[in-house]
């Protein structure tokens, strides 16, 4: 008998994602993004995102089925992001997924978006090691997680106490006159910049901060420091070396993230680090994480960039793992939860 066929739907932010997997094999991963609609606002506008999800839903499901060369009726279960995310955006995906489950007479899993970011790596590198440490960094999240079992047991070790990592990239990009979303543009500018040109602050790394916020991160102070630096240069009539600022800022972010992730692995005696979320596409983060993991004998797993950003495949991947492990499906009346805790992997 072949492994179960799972269709996953993701609408927690501005990507309408529909993924189809069989077991841990990726068959389709279609995404419609409304990012261009948000660019002029400098950030995701929830109502704009929700409208775009509704428009994109059926065409994206259709494309995914076509790509996977399957009929909807062949699907064994539906998985959908139940949270965390933008409330109105989540509702469009959840309503669509419930309608699919009802029409097809199949079970539905309302799953945790963060757990899915971790689980998606199974599509690339096989079953996760138990336990793993996971670091999720994107425009919406910055979390450090201890993952003994991605289907039922995740412990939040730390998170951002202000901005998400990706948000810091967006805001600094704006200061530097780079487009939204900032991540890829800063990454590119930094390639030809000097990461040691400016010593930007590393948030929550002093002994005093570590006592209380060992695995938490903070990017608000860094963002302000960059803005101050740029303004001072401008006021003094100097040309702002965008590439150096980008590289130095990026270095500060990457340094703190990788240091904390390695510390979590060593503290909890875990030998696998998984990195996910949009910021995991950052080339410097991938490089430094690789070096520091190698130094400490930690195996590093990062999915390819397309699977790091929000997508339907990651939701399908988690649905598939839940089914493989015999976890209970959700009730048709389950609620989406914009602030869903990572301790809840699947909605009851």
């Amino acid at each position: 008998m072949s492994e179960p066929l799972i269709l996953g739907i993701e609408t927690s932010c501005d990507e309408t994602g529909v993924g189809i997997v069989r077991g841990t094999t990726l068959l389709a991963d279609e995404i419609a993004t409304s990012v261009a609609l948000h660019a002029r606002f400098g950030g995701v506008v929830p109502e704009v995102a929700s409208r775009a999800h509704l428009e994109a839903m059926v065409p994206t499901i259709e494309k995914a089925c076509k790509k996977a060369a399957i009929k909807l009726a062949d699907v064994d279960a539906i998985a959908v992001t139940a949270g965390p995310g933008l409330a109105g955006a989540l509702l469009v995906g959840v309503a669509s997924a419930k309608a699919l489950a009802l029409a097809l007479g199949k079970p539905i899993y309302g799953v945790n978006h963060l757990a899915a970011h971790v689980c998606v790596d199974q599509l690339e590198h096989g079953l996760l090691d138990q336990p793993s440490i996971a670091m999720l960094v994107s425009g919406g999240h910055s979390s450090l997680l201890l993952v003994p079992d991605v289907t039922q047991d995740i412990v939040a070790l730390g998170q951002t106490i202000d901005d998400a990592a990706g948000e810091a990239f967006d805001k600094v990009a704006r200061v530097l006159g780079l487009p939204f979303p900032g991540g890829p543009y800063i990454d590119e500018a930094a390639l030809t910049g000097n990461p040691e040109a400016i010593a930007f602050p590393r948030g929550l790394t002093t002994p005093k901060d570590l006592a209380k916020h060992r695995f938490d991160v903070s990017f608000s102070g860094l963002k302000t420091a960059v803005a101050r630096w740029v303004e001072r240069e401008q006021r003094e009539g100097n040309t702002v070396m965008v590439n150096d600022v980008a590289a130095s800022f990026q270095e500060a972010v990457v340094d703190v993230l990788t240091r904390k992730a390695i510390d979590a692995c060593l503290t909890h005696d875990v030998s696998t680090l998984v990195i996910g979320g949009g910021v995991a596409a950052n080339s410097r983060l991938r490089k430094v994480a690789g070096e520091r993991c190698a130094e400490h004998g930690i195996s590093l797993r990062i999915p390819r960039p397309g699977l790091c950003t929000d997508n339907g495949a990651m939701i399908a991947a988690l649905g598939s793992e839940l089914m493989r492990r015999g976890r209970d499906a959700s009730l048709l009346s389950f609620s989406s939860d914009s602030s869903m805790s990572v301790t809840s992997v699947v909605s009851p």
């Binding site: 109502e47 929700s50 509704l54 059926v58 409330a87 469009v92 669509s96 419930k98 309608a99 029409a103």
Partner: peptide, 19 residues
């Protein structure tokens, strides 16, 4: 009201599409 309205439209549209 938009948020609630979209739920019904998504439900109806996807249900019809699936069948």
């Amino acid at each position: 009201p938009f948020t609630g309205l979209r739920v019904g439209i998504a439900t109806a549209e996807v249900f019809a599409y699936a069948l």
